[in-house]
Write a protein that binds this DNA or RNA. Structure first.
Lengths: 210, 210
DNA sequence: AATTGTGAATCTCTTCACAGCA
DNA sequence: TGCTGTGAAGAGATTCACAATT
């Protein structure tokens, strides 16, 4: 099997969102043309992307929404539930704990940790915030594969190492630092200021309308 | 002037972070080789990227950190202060309000809005949360160029339109929807579940170590 | 008639490799 | 010698365009 281009992987979530919406609306089939218009891509690109995962389109008709949905879910790995460890229960951690989209999309917070004694023991939904000292043991014991890192920048690398040693395979990192980790651990970075900088860059480099 | 490739724009924030750290540590020069190792890029790429903005490296020495820092800041547009409107004062909105990195990086929240009457009037730092009905007028009056959208998915498109009409040039969107806007308005999307899906995808498609 | 899947062409990005500079 | 800046080559991603399919 050809390996999947990075660019394609980044678009899969896009397809998933579209297909879930269509399925929810009872739409049975979708053509590459129709999908491409909704998503702002080209029709050829949609076909090329989907072709990486097999050939399940139907000439003259398009793709069966339900079948394709199952396929994309399987490809993304969201056809099963993923327990996630949340580390850091500050402002951001609390917002993530309350984030309603996660449970609807196969990710559920299975444990919450914080190093601040004042926060430990506090109830977050049905969970209690646990001391960060128990992080390694608990994550390993529960075999939690994913973690969300919502701790201050200067604590991030240390926590990341402990998570990696505890067997975590992927980390969603909100701290504005580049984590150094063994390559079996994948990292997705979300950095709010980087995103704002992209906006200021584009504004600065575009002709003003007025 | 050649137009700047998208891929380069995305790396500028990376360079900015590195240069700020070096400058803080009193480092005077940096070679493309040294920079590339820290950042996990190739040395040729660093040189190529920087060359888009002029030629200010020095043969045999490298780049002057302070000069390059100023240059990168100017390119990204973070050499001046950017007022930002925050729309949505729920869990995420409060976390963003408290986010300490923004003020250090030329972005400051200049106004906060929420449609929930119970939240209006509440104090967020030195600001009072304002009614969303005043959004258009206030944003226009204050000429706020950037907005952070931290509202529920079903309200996002409507708020985005009002922001666009009020003259906003860039929107950082946290709602899991694709905003339709005039193309003079740039959008950066941050979608937590998309990032988690990228992790599950990579884990699913990688040989397990054990 | 409508639509897929894909070779070939094109466009974009990255790396190689080296002349030229301090 | 150590390093930049860049032309040329290479790799990767996108689009074109059309034979094959229902």
């Amino acid at each position: 099997m050809k390996s999947i281009p990075k660019a394609v992987a980044n678009r899969l979530s896009l397809y998933l969102r579209l297909l879930e919406r269509l399925h929810g609306n009872g739409v049975l089939t979708i053509s590459s043309r129709a999908a491409s218009e909704t998503l702002g891509l080209s029709d050829a690109q949609v076909r090329r992307d989907l072709a990486y995962f097999g050939t399940f389109g139907q000439s003259g008709i398009g793709y069966l929404v339900e079948e394709l949905l199952g396929k994309v879910r399987a490809i993304l790995g969201t056809d099963r539930a993923w327990p996630v460890a949340l580390v850091g229960y500050g402002n951001l951690g609390r917002a993530l704990m309350a984030y309603a989209e996660f449970p609807h999309r196969s990710f559920h917070i299975a444990a919450v940790f914080d190093s601040d004694k004042a926060k430990v023991g506090r109830s977050a939904r049905q969970l209690k915030v646990q001391s960060a000292s128990r992080l390694f043991t608990r994550v390993k014991q529960l075999r939690i594969p994913l973690a969300i890192l919502a701790v201050p920048a200067d604590a991030a690398q240390n926590v990341a190492w402990r998570l990696a040693r505890a067997g975590v395979r992927g980390i969603l990192n909100f701290a504005p630092v580049r984590l150094q980790l063994p390559k079996r651990v994948f990292v997705s970075n979300i950095d709010f200021t980087v995103s704002l900088e992209q906006l200021s860059f584009h504004i600065r480099h575009t002709k003003r309308k007025s």
